[in-house]
Every structure is written in structure tokens, then in C-alpha cells.
Write a protein that binds this DNA or RNA. Structure first.
Length: 269
DNA sequence: CGCACCCCCTGCCGGC
DNA sequence: TGCCGGCAGGGGGTGC
């Protein structure tokens, strides 16, 4: 479910509610996530303040003081949600009971998510996360450096978290449509003007998606239970056979590295 | 090294 | 109606 815009939406929705509070207690109901939850997880979080929330690619980082952070990755089906008195739901795996605030629940049916506590420098997962397309330093020049000698399809490169942080299957297709580039084009062989178009399309699509509160294509909700509506603006994702919004040509679907990819054969070269 | 493939897990949908 | 296969927004490991 969550790519950069959804993770950022969750971050922003949680900020006003959890920053400044304290984790009074942690309740773990299921330790078998992508990696088993550490034996000392509860002890590491219990009693700690939440001083801020950052995002790196698809990872959330809760600053719990003393130089330590709670790292959260939502995998395919994970959510983080503030719940007042709503009853427990299936797949509620970790419950953070906050002082003077609703409880924060990590729910993840497929259990591909990840929770860890540690110092940023010691969190290996973060070391390999590539640059964020929403960062100020993002530019066509930067993208040019990233595609050098990479002959793989541009869509695969966009989704490689070590190269660029935060882009998943929905937004890779959407930004390639915006840039007028087909998903199977070799990254290294893109022309200068295509890279320029792509670099700005990446940013524009992600910004608009954050603005819309993310894509709620299944049942994505932010930290306070609100749906996003960017799915209504999808140009190509999950629109195989439907008319291109720009030229009315039927949208096509191809499979790249096992992932469905969508494009308009007329608008994208 | 780069890349395709398979796996992890549950839920949902369409077809029979 | 009920069952089954295929597919789903994630990443990591393996083996070519």
C-alpha cells in the first residue's frame, strides 16, 4: 500500500497528535513481522517521549530521544492509526499506549512491515535508502547521475529504493506517463530532455499525491482514519484498456520484474 | 556486479 | 454458493 505519498500523509497526520506525548506502554500481539520483533522491543520504547517524526523514502522515524529512533516500515499492507475507543481489529500487531492521546496501532495483515529501535547510524535499513525526490537538492542533474550506465528499464530503476527513496509501483507508472516515457525504456539511454521532464514529473506527481492525501486504492487511511483521493487522478495505474485522459488511446499493461506497469502507447515514447 | 526470479503473508476478486 | 487460482501498493535472498 504505502509509497512515499502515503507514508508522508501518515507522518503529517500523526505529527500534531503524537509529538510531545509519551509512550506509556507497548503491547505486542504478534512478533512475526518481516523480521521477528526484537525481544527487547517493548522495553526499548516504553516510557520514551516522542519528539518528532521524520521520513526517509518509505520509512518513518519516530524520534524517541537519547539519540534513538523507532523505525517503521509499512510493507504492502501496514497502517499506523490513532484509535480512541474503536474496538481492536484483526491484525492489530503492536499497540502504543500514549499518555493523554489516543493509542497508536500498527496493523498489518500481510506482516511484511518492520519495526525496530536504534540509533540512526545503526539502523542498516536506512543506509541503503537513496535520495528523496521531494528534497530540495533533487534535480535533473542528480537524476542524470543516477541513470549513468544503468541499462535496466527506467521503471525498475525508479522503484529501486537504493537508487531513489520512496517510489513504488503506482507512482513509477504515473510519473513516467507525466514525463512521456515508456516504462521499458533503458534508463541509460534516456535523452537529456527526457531526464529533465522525468525529474520534474517525479516531483510534481509525488507533491500532488501528498496534497491529495495519497492513493486509497484498497483502503488506505492516514493516521486519523481519513482517505486520500489521488487514485481519482491516476492517469494510467490500474487503467488497462481505458481511454487515456489526454489522447483517448487505450492504456496498456506490461509486466516488468513481475510488477504490472501501465502506460499510454501514444503519449509515451 | 546486475538483474530476473522466487519467496514471505493474507485478503479479495473473478471464473468455474 | 463455494472453492481455487491469480494478483495486490513491500523488500530480501538466491542463482545465473
Amino acid at each position: 500500500m504505502p509509497e512515499l505519498p502515503e507514508v508522508e500523509t501518515i507522518r503529517q497526520s500523526l505529527l500534531p497528535h503524537v509529538v510531545g506525548t509519551v509512550v506509556a506502554n507497548v503491547e505486542v500481539r504478534e512478533r512475526r513481522l518481516r523480521r521477528p520483533l526484537a525481544a527487547d522491543f517493548e522495553q526499548a520504547v516504553r516510557g520514551r517521549p516522542i519528539c518528532g517524526i521524520e521520513r526517509r523514502g518509505k520509512y518513518l522515524l519516530f524520534d524517541i530521544d537519547r539519540g534513538e529512533h523507532l523505525l517503521v516500515h509499512l510493507g504492502m499492507s501496514g497502517t499506523l492509526e490513532l484509535r480512541d475507543s474503536t474496538p481492536d481489529q484483526p491484525h492489530d500487531h503492536v499497540l502504543f499506549h500514549l499518555r493523554d492521546a489516543p493509542r497508536l496501532v500498527f496493523n498489518d495483515p500481510r506482516r511484511f512491515g518492520l519495526l525496530r529501535v536504534g540509533r540512526i547510524a545503526e539502523l542498516d535499513e536506512l543506509r541503503s535508502v537513496g535520495p528523496d525526490p521531494l528534497a530540495e537538492q533533487w534535480s535533473a542533474e542528480r537524476l542524470r547521475g543516477l541513470v549513468r550506465r544503468r541499462k535496466l528499464p527506467i521503471k525498475n530503476l525508479l522503484m529501486d529504493q537504493r537508487v531513489i527513496g520512496g517510489i513504488g509501483n503506482i507512482y513509477a507508472s504515473e510519473m513516467l506517463f507525466r514525463a512521456g516515457v515508456r516504462p521499458r525504456r533503458s534508463a541509460a539511454r534516456l535523452r537529456g530532455r527526457e531526464l529533465t521532464a522525468l525529474a520534474s514529473a517525479m516531483r510534481a506527481v509525488l507533491e500532488e499525491a501528498v496534497q491529495a492525501g495519497g492513493s486509497s486504492i484498497s483502503d488506505f487511511r492516514d493516521g486519523t482514519g481519513r482517505s486520500g483521493y489521488f487514485q481519482l487522478q491516476h492517469a494510467v495505474y490500474e487503467r488497462e484498456g481505458e481511454a487515456c485522459r489526454r489522447c483517448a488511446t487505450p492504456i496498456r499493461r506490461v509486466v516488468l520484474s513481475g510488477r504490472s506497469s501501465f502506460y499510454c502507447p501514444r503519449c509515451q515514447v
